[in-house]
Amino acid sequence: MHAFGQILKIETRLYLRDLAAPLITIVLPLLLLTVFGMIPALRESNPDFGDRSFIQYFAPSLLVITLAMAAVNILPTVLATYRERGVLRRLATTPASPAALLAAQLVISLGTILISAVLLIVVGRLAFDVPLPRHPLGFALALVLGTAALLALGLLVAAVAPTNKSAQAIAVPLFMLVMFFGGVYLPRFMLPNFLVRIGDYTPPGVQALLDAWTTDAPRPLHLAIMAVIAVLAGSAAAKLFRWE
């Protein structure tokens, strides 16, 4: 336990030292929320967004930025780099297991996601009339399952990519798909309907987050799909993962 605490402490420092990672993962979504929130028109409810304001409609997509960055961008590249450079192998020769390093990385991803979600919810509520999640349990479930699905995909990338370069070659397109279907690049009301439907089932499941945040319980099918993706990708990753 002592060893895990040390690893977590050091890995957290390394994460924070790599300024770009926390900036894009936590600060950027908050900054976008603030910039859009300062525009009065975007705070008025609009039938285009199902009688929500644009800010309310777009907030879950801001959360997708955090999720996509943490789970399918940073996590797989860090792990692949550690494996490529022999960091994991070296740990395997000590009483600490490389699994402790993997666990520390997961804790950091989860911590980042949690911090960003809380910040978006609180700042959105206090400053920009975004309600607290209307269906807290549904929101928590959607966030947990969406996170699990994305982290599992991130681990799968880390499992199959032998090097930093190859991890990025898989992770970057995956990251862009997640961002696109999560409505980050183009707000989803601007997308054709079939792309929006695909987005409903693309991890982390932005529609379920939106439903639970601003209306009511997310649809069970949306959640179930995330759970299935998490289990399938997660077990494939566990099967394929190599320490060296």
Partner: peptide, 15 residues
């Protein structure tokens, strides 16, 4: 009880 120094094993850049 055994310390091992492996060939070509590196550490994270910022450590």
């Amino acid at each position: 009880l055994v310390g091992v120094q492996l060939q070509e094993s590196q550490l994270p850049d910022r450590l």
